[in-house]
């Protein structure tokens, strides 16, 4: 980690030094050394960028190859665009069902998380009542709690409530799992919004419900978008929870689970191209969404750590 962060910093210092050299403040003629180091740090940055992208590109490339090509020449480009693997993965290997299952669960849990989270955060941020801080810290404490600890008790709670291997059960767990961060993030956001607008709405005769939904929520839109994207990624990519709580039928699996099942079954069949097609299929929509929303994603994912 130090290797990659230091050059970032070093190079930003270089730019400011280069700026100095241009204004003539750099009298000692260290431009040469700076240039060499600059090339060096750029080299390391570029190297890691390659290390990150090459495995991904390799997967995309393999998805268009035949099985024989994958085995004999893993690094050679495909001899032609073999798209039949994509069809196989989509229909025969249940990828379409996995996508749909994930979509159902994440749609339900995301809607629930955002609704409950924003309501709780609004009350905790804007109203003073005994126990307010206690409830807030109870929620925030949940953020530092690794899921794996609660896994076994959670399993038995779900079992006793007959929610094991059902989507409503999974949705409820996802909501509970996402609420702490959502409330933490949004209550900070609601606190920064001006009080005068809400007061004006109250004076005009709006009820609390109306004030919240028609005045406060639209004002909190940037925060809602950030935390919404963050929750979407976390829930869409969740692997541990469904692995434990959703072990029913093969075709009820969620996408990450389904991919692992696919890897096992296609491994037996030797259908590697189908497997790579499945992987890329699962990878590309998320990467595309990330590139579009990258500012919000990075802000959301690092906000919890910076506070």
């Amino acid at each position: 980690m130090a290797v990659t962060t230091e050059p970032t910093e070093g190079s930003s210092a270089v730019t400011s030094r280069a700026g100095k050299a241009r204004t003539g403040a750099d009298r000692r003629g260290t431009g040469g050394e700076g240039g060499v180091l600059n090339v060096f740090s750029h080299g390391i940055l570029l190297l890691w960028a390659l290390m990150v992208t090459l495995p991904l590109l390799w997967a995309v490339m393999s998805a268009f190859k035949t099985d024989r090509e994958i085995f004999t020449s893993p690094w050679a480009p495909p001899s032609g665009l073999h798209v039949d693997a994509w069809g196989r993965a989509w229909s025969q290997a249940h990828m379409s069902e996995y996508f749909l299952n994930s979509l159902i669960v994440v749609a339900g849990s995301l809607a629930g998380t955002m609704l409950l989270g924003s309501m709780a955060a609004y009350v905790l941020a804007r109203f003073d009542f005994p126990g307010n801080r206690f409830i807030y810290f109870l929620f925030v404490g949940g953020m530092s709690f690794p899921v794996i600890l609660a896994l076994v008790p959670l399993f038995f709670v779900m079992k006793n409530m007959h929610l094991l291997n059902t989507y409503p059960g999974l949705i409820l767990v996802y909501i509970a799992y996402s609420l702490p961060f959502t409330i933490f993030f949004l209550s900070g956001f609601f606190r920064t919004l001006p009080t005068s607008v809400a007061e004006a709405a109250m004076i005009d005769g709006a009820s609390h419900t109306r004030t919240f939904f028609q005045v406060m929520l639209p004002m909190a839109k940037p925060g809602l978008i950030s935390v919404g994207i963050f929750n979407f990624l976390g829930q869409w990519n969740q692997y541990l929870l469904p692995t434990v709580l959703n072990v029913g039928d093969e075709d009820k699996k969620l996408l990450p689970q389904g991919l692992v099942a696919l890897a096992v079954s296609q491994g037996y069949k030797g259908d590697w191209s189908g497997l790579f097609a499945g992987l890329v299929m699962a990878m590309l929509p998320v990467l595309a969404a990330y590139i579009v929303f990258q500012r919000q994603v990075q802000a959301g994912l690092t906000a919890g750590a910076l506070k």
Partner: peptide, 23 residues
């Protein structure tokens, strides 16, 4: 660079692990 370095973070850990299993 920041966008590219962040790619693995947005992928499911299942995808990453499977990818490297083959690598």
């Amino acid at each position: 660079y920041k966008i590219v370095y962040f790619f693995p973070q947005v992928l499911s850990i299942a995808i990453v692990a499977l990818l490297f299993q083959f690598a």
